[in-house]
């Protein structure tokens, strides 16, 4: 079946990074979650009606080469700065989903002048004021992902009721890379409440009100730290906002980027 998007490969720091891309107009980088990129999602397609969308698989995730030397999420953020420089995509806007939101926030603290706008969707990276970020390392992958959905039928629709072995292995590879760079402290940068104050980039924070992986109070804390941030919360929505509320998220993002 013909599809609208294409697949590309680029090389950064001696390793190949695979990416999906489609659309036309100003560039928007979408950074995927810790479970990897599930493919070209309807959310990406809707966004590509307005922008040129790039969705790379993080180094060490999916089919992208593993940088053996990488030790933390900040290293990963630097590689993405490098990739954007090589691909001449800056300045641009970034949409970070979950773990990808953490990477995007790290990038913002490094060079916010190269960022037009920032969208953080149920982002990790900020230590919650109440509760904890759900620890995937204590859970079966499928249980972890299912917990991220308010309506589990959305997970079945995305991955199938019985995910294929290839998908299971891909999750395993992604979990290994997550272990390598986000094991401890788990899924947050303790310096964020201070460092993010330096970021001038207008930021949209989007959270599902039923997020059982990254507590909504992480979003509130992001809003306190970022000087130019607004927070939108969605009813009947879990952690995987881009799957459970693709239309609403697209509308919010397009409206925000177009301001």
């Amino acid at each position: 079946m013909a599809h609208t998007w294409s697949e590309g490969v680029t090389e950064v720091a001696g390793g190949k990074i695979h990416f999906l891309t489609s659309g036309a107009g100003a560039p928007v980088l979408v950074l995927h979650r810790d479970v990897g990129n599930p493919g070209w999602l309807p959310f990406y397609e809707q966004l590509a009606q307005h922008y040129t969308v790039y969705v790379p698989s993080h180094p060490g995730f999916d089919k992208s080469d593993r940088p053996e030397w990488m030790r933390n999420v900040r290293d990963l953020a630097v590689l993405y700065q490098w990739l954007l420089k090589d691909m001449k995509l800056r300045p641009l806007s970034i949409v970070g989903l979950g773990f990808g939101g953490w990477i995007a926030a790290e990038m913002a603290t490094m060079d916010h002048h190269q960022l037009r706008k920032l969208v953080l969707v149920s982002a990790m990276g900020m230590k919650p004021t109440r509760g904890e970020i759900l620890d995937q390392f204590l859970l079966y992958t499928t249980d972890y992902i299912r917990t991220g959905f308010h309506d589990p039928s959305h997970m079945d629709a995305l991955y199938g009721k019985e995910p294929e072995v290839d998908q299971l292995v891909a999750w395993e590879i992604n979990r290994e890379m997550t272990t390598r760079i986000a094991w401890k402290p788990y899924m947050f940068n303790a310096a964020f409440p201070t460092l993010l104050k330096s970021v001038d980039t207008p930021t949209l924070l989007v959270w599902g009100k039923e997020d059982r992986i990254t507590p909504v109070n992480c979003g509130e804390r992001y809003m306190q730290a970022l000087p130019h941030a607004e927070l939108a919360t969605l009813n009947a929505c879990g952690h995987f906002v881009e799957v459970e509320k693709a239309n609403e998220l697209t509308q919010l993002v397009v409206e925000f980027l177009g301001k």
Binding site: Y140, P163, W171
Partner: peptide, 11 residues
């Protein structure tokens, strides 16, 4: 161990 473990992971 990835494949057998992946299958463990989902029970």
């Amino acid at each position: 161990a990835r494949k057998p473990l992946a299958e463990f992971r989902v029970g």
